[in-house]
Design a protein around this nucleic acid. Sequence first.
RNA 1: GACCCUAUCGUCUAGCGGUUAGGACACCGCCCUUUCACGGCGGUAGCGCGGGUUCGAUUCCCGCUAGGGUCGCCA
Length: 461
Amino acid sequence: MIVRVRFAPSPTGFLHIGGARTALFNWLYARHAGGAFILRIEDTDVARNTPEAVEVILNGLRWLGLEWDEGPIEVGSSRCDDRTPQRGVPTSKGNYGPYFQSQRAEIYRKRVQELKDKGLAYDHDGAVKFKMTREPIVIPDLVVGNVTRELTDRERMDPDFVIVRSDGQPVFHLVNVVDDLEMGITHVIRGEDHLSNTAKHIALFRAFGVEPPKYAHIPLILNQDGTKMSKRDRGASLTGYLEEGYAPEAVVNYLCLLGWSPKDNREVVPIQEVVRMFDLPQILRHNARFDLDKLHWLNGEYIRVMSNERFYELAVPALKKAGFDTDKYPEAYVRAALDTCKGKKRLFSELADYGGFYFVEEVDYDAEAAAKDFTAENLERLRRLRDAFAALAPFGAATLESALKETARQLGLKAGVLVHPARLACTGKTAGPSLYHLLEVLGKERVLARLERALAKFYGG
RNA sequence: GACCCUAUCGUCUAGCGGUUAGGACACCGCCCUUUCACGGCGGUAGCGCGGGUUCGAUUCCCGCUAGGGUCGCCA
């Protein structure tokens, strides 16, 4: 049997971190089993459905690197319809489409008719209801085991449920089952919030005369305080991670660790290894709280080992977002500057504050540090340092270091006494990249200009 | 109200009858160091409660409690 799994989000304009993890687990299982990962858009709720909302989902999955084998390819602002591709460009791929529920009305209509013909569905107040079995249903679940679902008190009064609304729109339970059936889905991997509803789905499958797929209900992601994570909660939106400067590979790694473990005390696990080891029965059964601190740490781990090229790729947009126009500087300068920042900060959004001094003409000085470092006795020291730097050639980290240390020796000082005011004069900050390296990158002209400016500003020339 | 799932440091987890209950994040010390980081060493901290079963329960069973989910003409 060829494994076919699907992620079936509703386009709400928002991709929940829990939904992202559901997508990830589906993707992991498909890749592990050599099966297909299908993306299906559950846009039956027309009111909430917009092409932009679909775009959020596609972009989110692409950012995480979860490529799907079947489903939408492109959703332009006016083409959400994969049956009428414009200019000959297909907007979906796969042989089981359409992959938008809004385009599958005819399929649902036929299936509802089938149930009616079998006497398993009937009209009720303009809606169509499914004749639900009165018996408890056993849900075989790969994660939680066999679950016997008894009827609740309300269901005992009327177990039947609506499958087509009085306005003619089919509801979730119906379309979900019909699509899984028609698309040949073999494993349904979804959030545990669907576990109770699965009895309805199994009954529907049986009504259509087919065996239901295998189920794997994965635990939910909760807030740090253990409450349900809803749309408004901090960290709930995947887009937030993209914007705050997380590397997608770190987010994916973190998500893998929520409810699954490599069991060998590792935290950083390459995705290909997760694919190899991942399996459904090993998924934990309890909910997990989202620990932003750990993701933050993991992001730092990923930054430290990523290539300078990848770092550059992610850092430049973060700097631009913070208002630093790196385009005004030669690419070699930007790359050299960023090289000195790599591994120092855990988030790309923190980079602007850390290395922004490279990309401004005049730095702002930390007032508290200025009061401490630009003291009367440091005036002559800074002048001596400036003179030593002015005479320097080549202007490299090694020569800068010896020049500073030699100047300190001549003044009978420890290097640190010169290091701190020099850093402050050239960056405006007390913390930053390695001093000698940042001076080299800044270059002789900028360094001397910044030293002069500090001397003028704090010592009146 | 009914039904379902779950329960190891604050958090993520390893454990699958006998362990000094292991790792990671966070936190606190010390070391390294030109700053900030990184790294190294050490530390605080955990089996929700009550019954069983067993020579022996974190581990198996039952109950309780707590948390989460579901019971819609939302998905």
